[in-house]
Amino acid sequence: MGTLWRWLLVLGGIWAFQFLASDQIDPYFYSIIIYSGINIVLAVSLNLVNGFTGQFSMGHAGFMSVGGYTSAFLTIWFAQQFPGVLESPWSGAPVFVGALLAGGLAASVAGFLVGLPSLRLKGDYLAIVTLGFGEIIRVLILNLDFIGGARGLPGIPALSHFGWVYSVVVVCVFFVARIMQSSHGREFLAVREDEIAAEATGVNTTRAKVRAFVLGAFFSGVAGGLFAHTLRYLNPQTFDFNKSFEIIIMVVLGGMGSITGSIVAAVLLTISREALRPLQELTHIDFRMIIYSLLLIVLMLTKPNGLFGRREINELFAAWSTRRKLKREGLS
């Protein structure tokens, strides 16, 4: 069975689950599953930039907000122009997919505009410029009155659900995994390993970096759209630096350069956020940020490669089965 078929089978399973069982899950549990999915998309797409291409970006929440606001604005406008269309799943679905794609495209345009000038910079400079762009996007949204400004954007149609979120997860993971197997992906890795050597072997490093950046921005924009239609309310404050930091820690914890790691870390951190909620109510501050930041420092000091390093689950599995085979044959 080809790889594509396996992925399509997973997609089919997700939609079967959506139609058969999604309304029987406890709503609280359901929302954790949904936010895990959104965070997986964010973490995997940031990993493409920070992990695989080695360009430390700290403005991911900015692209997420561009995508979220664009798609939310579109669906709200559509709901006003053509009332009733969004209620039916058959006519609502294409509109929603279109809005998500538009959000992703808007975010990738923003990514292109940000990336083209700033990707000439390296390391710390790039980090702070992307952080700055994230802040500029936030300040711009705060000042745009037609999308609510500081009041936020309420009344977004509730279009997102398990099926959509996890379809995007599958598409995103498939896409990133396949890209990393292609020559484009090899270019990203070459840029990460040694930019000068990559350039000497004929890799157009700026183009590779901008591509990674634009792709990452696209998926974070789509994730922003999902987020908007799940929460049904957007506020510029949601997309501040702490949001970017949250995505960064998912990538770092999972291992910069491991899709499996990003997925595991995104799920872990989404659950831990809920587990830490009592502490947050006790202390009246965002307590998990203390734990996240400590975790980050300790991680860097003791296990800088994160949980998975640069390995994927299938590589780990292959290594494990080889070891077992060797043992069985008495070779080790």
Binding site: G54, F56, M58, G123, D124, A127, N242, F245, I248, V252, I285, D286, F287, M289, I290, Y292, S293, L294, L296, I297, M300, L301, P304
Partner: peptide, 19 residues
Amino acid sequence: APRVNLLITAVGVSLFLQF
């Protein structure tokens, strides 16, 4: 360590102090 690790630690220290 690689430079990026130092950068991540610095961000971590910053947020740790804030919160």
